[in-house]
Write a protein that binds this DNA or RNA. Sequence first.
DNA 1: TCTGGGGTCCTAGGACCC
DNA 2: TCTGGGGTCCTAGGACCC
Length: 385
Amino acid sequence: MVIYQQEHSTPIETTDTRQFIFHVDLDAFFAAVEMREDPSLVGKPIMVGGDKDTKRGIVTTCNYEARKYGIHSGMSAKEAIERCPEIICVRRGHYDLYREVSDNILNILNSYTDHFRSASIDEAYLNLTDEVEKEHNGYPIPLAEEIKNEIFEEEKITCSIGIGPNTTIAKIATSRNKPNGITYVPKASIKRFLYPLPVKAISGIGTKSAESLKRIHGIENIGQIIEIGSEHEMIRKFGRLGSFFYRVVSGKGRTTIQPSSSFGVKSISKGRTFHGHMFDGEQIPIEMVLPKLIDSVHERLTKKSFRYKTVTLDVRFQDNFQNITRSRSFQAANDDKERIRTTVYELLAEINSDFNKAKIRKAAVRVSNLVKYDSMQKTITDYFS
DNA sequence: TCTGGGGTCCTAGGACCC
DNA sequence: TCTGGGGTCCTAGGACCC
């Protein structure tokens, strides 16, 4: 069974004391920032990402006006435009501004507790158990309102908040009441809340795992998992995933929110998709694009004062969408751009010979196995002392 | 759903070491 | 020449997330 569940990698806290985990999700974030900057967009359907002229690309984010037409993130720009011809496309989003607004909001959230972790540019988890118990008599809604109000006062951005006994339930709760909503799932309501939801509502259960659960076990909604009952039975049926299911539905599960450290970033990559017209006979444009990708990766690498040990070239073929990756690791970490360049071209040569120069749709350069400059210095110092 | 870009994490096989 | 078990690193592929 192809089931992937990242929650297993971290220790799961098994405390029985009541926990209040908040999940904060900014509503249609990129679109919301665009509307804040240009109020003439308010009330009109807009999407960030995608090109209205060529109808290429996909919708990265769209506002709630656009969602009335059934448009959602991930949808092809072509379909979005067909559904709503008057939609306004912000083709090149203002990503630096999104990052800045996000940082401001994450700082606000962090001021409520150190048990805080940003999960992405528009999402964060907080464990506010102490605050709710000591300052709010065990009732979390007013604190959620306070957080929402402060974010809106400071940044004019709305968010939705889900509150539950663990991170998984808090995140599902957020999604049930958007935009601008608060959803609280006390432990006693877990079953009633989760029962009718499809298994895909659980973050980490994607299309493939949902298909496997249906095909092998005939399971489509979370209620059917709950019915299995004991932890022992769940583990027998689903292996390690069973233990995760049991903890989620029994209100245990992960409640520890570890702050993401500055070493959090594991890899830096830059990719580019080529479109049909760029292919000209045997002329593969990839050689023309690779230097730009390498420059971009190297620039961010040095800006963050990282050094790398591994260089990877990812390639997606045009005809079958097959993804291929080739990588090479080095013993010593450094930030040499020339080493990235020569390695990338060696890897490209390997791919070309392995796959008979199949036409490439997408290429991405990645460095990983990152080492922070100062921690590397420490290692060297340790070595000689 | 005919498809962007930037990520994380997991797995499995093989090399290599003790 | 055949034989363990355990650990770690590397590589490639894949699922999943926003």
